[in-house]
């Protein structure tokens, strides 16, 4: 288990290099004047010139990358073009928002997904059909739309939950929870159905395996088979699924942050992307990569505890 964890951490270095390099070298593919392309068609010649200067677009790209890398090693990810703030400083305050969102969503989806999946596996035909439809809905309904309808129901109609903004945990834990409920629900919708489906399939698979028949044949109770043996197999699968879905979850989180006006990394990246604030996006790339590596590491450790072989393989 420690070997794989070590591998994850070691692999994080080339991954970070690769992602950050991509953010620079993609500029090589921009046709024509990069500054004009970034600034947009409506930018004045002065603005474009300023942009070129600020982004050091007059220097060779590898030189820029090398300079960025040297600073990045010391924790300096450069300055935002639009606000002049330090990128790492600005993003540090936003990290908590995105982390809260992603972790809460994953935990909620795991619990709700497994419970629904196990209930679905034991139900009859009606349950099965419902579960099938729900799992297709989960794959097809945009998170933005789920959030939109959530806002309409819980805010516009019933006035129960805030539609916008974020309350820091330190300010008011209750407010923090309320501000996260709708975004988390919008994000979790898809993941819940994925996990419920996996739970259902894995459960059906495990319960049809030889060792389950042998457990039954030798008198072990159904309860023990279901909640000890089957649940452990399900957990391994489901944690792996959650890990595989992290990247997609981050993608959806960007959209959801924007919809609910949450001051997270995602909304920072969106603002930066529309204003050509390249250093900020590059910074978010680094943070996102670290989040993916870190959370996957945690999930690996959990899987490793449940199934030492899975990690060895």
């Amino acid at each position: 288990m420690w070997r794989t964890s070590g591998m994850r951490i070691v692999q994080a270095v080339p991954l970070l290099l690769f992602v950050s390099a991509l953010t620079f070298f993609l500029q090589l593919f921009v046709p024509g004047d990069a500054a004009r392309s970034i600034g947009g068609l409506n930018a004045s010649p002065q603005a474009v010139a300023a942009l070129r200067h600020r982004l050091h677009l007059d220097q060779p790209v590898w030189e820029r990358y090398w300079a960025w890398l040297k600073d990045a090693v010391h924790g300096d990810l450069g300055q935002s073009i639009s606000s002049n703030e330090s990128v790492s400083g600005a993003l540090n305050t936003r990290l908590g928002v995105t982390l809260s969102l992603v972790i809460a969503t994953t935990l909620l989806a795991l619990v709700v997904g497994v419970v629904l999946g196990m209930a679905g596996a034991r139900g009859g035909r009606a349950t099965r059909v419902t579960a099938d439809i729900a799992s297709i809905a989960g794959m097809t309904v945009p998170a933005f739309w789920v959030g939109l309808l959530g806002i309409w129901i819980f805010n516009t109609r019933w006035g129960l939950l805030p539609a916008n903004g974020y309350v820091f945990f330190g300010t008011s834990p209750g407010g923090w929870l309320r501000s996260l409920l709708l975004p988390v629900a919008a994000l979790a919708f898809a993941l819940v159905t994925v996990i419920a489906k996996q739970t259902r399939e894995q459960l059906a698979d495990v319960l049809s395996r030889d060792f389950v028949r042998n457990l039954r044949a030798n008198g072990v109770s159904e309860r023990s088979i279901l909640f000890k043996h089957a649940l452990r197999h399900v957990s391994v699968t489901v944690l792996t699924v959650a890990g595989n879905n992290l990247i997609g979850l981050l993608g959806a989180a960007v959209v959801v942050e924007e919809l609910f006006g949450l001051p997270g990394l995602g909304s920072a990246a969106v603002t930066a992307a529309s204003s050509g604030d390249i250093p900020v996006i590059q910074g978010v790339a680094v943070y996102f990569t670290l989040i993916v590596v870190g959370l996957n590491l945690l999930l690996d450790l959990a899987v490793g505890r449940l199934n030492p072989q899975a990690v060895a393989a």
Binding site: V19, T23, A272, A273, I278, V284
Partner: peptide
């Protein structure tokens, strides 16, 4: 392992 969304945002900004 690349967070794809961020790459998309960069590409949109650059292109």
């Amino acid at each position: 392992s690349i967070p794809g969304i961020i790459l998309l945002l960069i590409v949109l900004a650059l292109f």
